[in-house]
């Protein structure tokens, strides 16, 4: 078991990095090697801080959903972070690149739930029946850890590197698109900078949502009606440059834009 004092110190370090916009060193060295629960305990401390500060919990994000990224980090499972109302950016609204530490963008499908998912072992059918609709989205991730030098414990402790999100304005029902086959392209200045398809997210993005639903019950924050779930990247992450606009289009789901103000 990782040391409780170390866990709260790690949380303080990350919070300070977040507040001061000065990235910190990795926190993994402060936790027992491979102790995932301790990393989530760090995350939870800072989540409670945000909730106490008045932020509203609006959903979750799933990370590490691509086989390639899992291989890079030497893990065999995804992770999750919490999404708050103050992270939401309207489609195309400019954000200062400095609003996020070391920003990167990825294109993914966001699902919006209309039912609670409180069962201990939710089936795919339970999950599909709980989803109201889907939208194209861009996750703007950032790392509070210097140079993105992260392992799975670092990113979990850092709220799965969540920062901001742009959810597209189109509401699409599950029978209107092919979640596995749908193409994803992110364009910057007319060039495709990241391409992929639904299958890149754990074989099908719904597989990721099912994993999350079970994990959230286990960790005491079950998914409920109205929650949004950013299900995981469909193509490689792209480093953000100030002044640039990144547009994601997902076949059958419409589009979303993340626009960054010049420096």
């Amino acid at each position: 078991m990782s040391d409780q004092t170390k866990i709260s110190e790690a949380a303080d370090m990350l919070q300070t990095a977040y507040d001061s916009s000065n990235p910190c060193l990795p926190v993994r060295t402060m936790l027992d090697e491979g102790d995932i629960d301790a990393a989530y305990a760090v995350q939870e401390i800072n989540s409670i801080r945000r909730l106490e500060g008045g932020a509203r919990l609006v959903g979750r994000k799933i990370g590490l959903t691509s086989k390639q990224v899992q291989k890079q980090l030497g893990v065999d499972r995804p992770d999750f972070g919490l999404l708050f109302d103050d992270m939401a950016v309207p489609d195309g609204e400019e954000v200062p690149a400095s609003a996020v530490l070391q920003p990167r963008v990825e294109g993914e499908i966001t699902y919006i739930l209309e039912k609670d998912l409180t069962m201990e072992r939710p089936t795919t059918t339970d999950v599909v029946s709980a989803i109201a609709y889907a939208s194209a989205s861009i996750e703007i991730v950032g790392s509070r850890i210097k140079d993105w030098d992260i392992n799975i414990q670092d990113t979990i402790a850092d709220n799965a590197s969540a920062a901001l999100m742009v959810i597209g304005n189109d509401k699409v029902f599950l029978d209107e698109f092919d979640g596995r086959m749908c193409g994803m392209v992110m364009e910057n200045r007319g060039e495709p900078v990241s391409v992929g398809a639904g299958v890149a997210c754990l074989g099908h993005p719904i597989n990721a949502v099912r994993w999350l639903a079970e994990e959230m019950v286990r960790r005491g924050r079950p998914l409920s009606a109205g929650d949004m779930v950013m299900s995981g990247a469909l193509g490689p992450m792209v480093k953000v440059e100030p002044g640039e606009v990144y547009e994601v289009r997902i076949s059958g789901l419409g589009s979303a834009r993340a626009a960054f103000a010049p420096e």
């Binding site: 596995r180 086959m181 749908c182 193409g183 392209v185 398809a197 299958v199 193509g235 289009r249």
Partner: peptide
């Protein structure tokens, strides 16, 4: 922007889109 999956023995080895 059509999704593309190339599989070897039923397992995806390359994932992309015609947009590439």
């Amino acid at each position: 922007n059509l999704g593309m999956i190339m599989e070897f023995d039923g397992r995806p080895v390359q994932i992309g889109s015609t947009a590439a």
